[in-house]
């Protein structure tokens, strides 16, 4: 007995599972790129090191600029301290932007 109403849902389910399996197979072969491919290399270690590097490099630039300003103006600890705090703030800004993702 060929009852179309009875067969249709089964076929639909089969189709759905086929689509899912196809998508899984394509993803496995790397045919469909995931949305965020190439954004950030996903491992938590990599992300942590990147964030740390952003903070450290901003601090280096801040302290370096502070020392240079002090050397120029002869006010040894003043700009060094200011540069330290501004560099830290810039580092946090960098990490914030890193987490936000640069593109909209």
């Amino acid at each position: 007995m060929d009852d179309p109403d009875k067969r249709a849902p089964g076929d639909a389910a089969k189709d759905a599972s086929f689509e899912a399996r196809l998508a899984a197979a394509r993803a496995k072969q790397g045919l469909d790129r995931p949305e965020n491919a190439g954004r950030q290399a996903g491992s938590p270690w990599g992300l942590g090191l990147r964030a740390g590097l952003e903070v450290a490099s901003a601090l280096v630039v801040g302290v370096g600029l502070g020392l240079a300003a002090d050397w120029w103006a002869g006010t040894r600890p003043l700009f060094l301290v200011a540069g330290l705090f501004l560099g830290g703030a810039a580092g946090v800004t960098n990490v914030y932007r890193l987490m936000l993702g640069r593109r909209r």
Partner: peptide, 24 residues
């Protein structure tokens, strides 16, 4: 007075982070 130095340092820190990442 706070935002501008922070943004300038953040912009300049690109050179450092870009070079240190590869080197390290």
């Amino acid at each position: 007075p706070i935002i501008i130095p922070v943004e300038i340092i953040s912009y300049l820190s690109r050179v450092v982070s870009l070079s240190v990442r590869l080197f390290a």
